[in-house]
Amino acid sequence: MIIYNYVFIGMLLLGAIGFALAPVIVMGILAPRKRSSSKADTYECGLLTTGETWVRFRIQYYIYAIMFLVFDVETVFLYPWAVAYERLGLFALAEMVVFLLILAVGLAYAWGKGVLKWV
């Protein structure tokens, strides 16, 4: 039964959370505690932090994220195709060539537009 695999994974998930939290809790008990105002400051090389940190970020990162999404969704189609390749035959191979070509054209377009260039 397939579902039992995921029962084990669920147990592992809970166990791993416990495994990660336990040393932090133990640290809370064992570690010395001497609070001071400057210790709780943000560490930016000894200088006081200036300005807001949670700001809007550069668009560059989001463009890569969009590119990633395109190719990651592509793998959702690619993996089942690869699994069933034995039974699908030549037509499916041709279809996959066309599908990947469309994506490759997209990549080439982004490349040509200079989107992939880190500025």
Binding site: L13, A16, I17, F19, A20, L21, P23, V24, V26, M27, G28, L30, A31, P32, R33, K34, K39, A40, D41, T42, Y43, T49, T53
Partner: peptide
């Protein structure tokens, strides 16, 4: 494990705790 547990004043305490747990998991 015997180091002082420091969380910056301005940090988001809970997310700060969850993040390493998530990576380890």
């Amino acid at each position: 494990i015997t180091k002082e547990d420091l969380v910056p004043r301005s940090a988001d305490r809970w997310v700060h705790l969850i993040a390493p747990v998530l990576i380890l998991v």
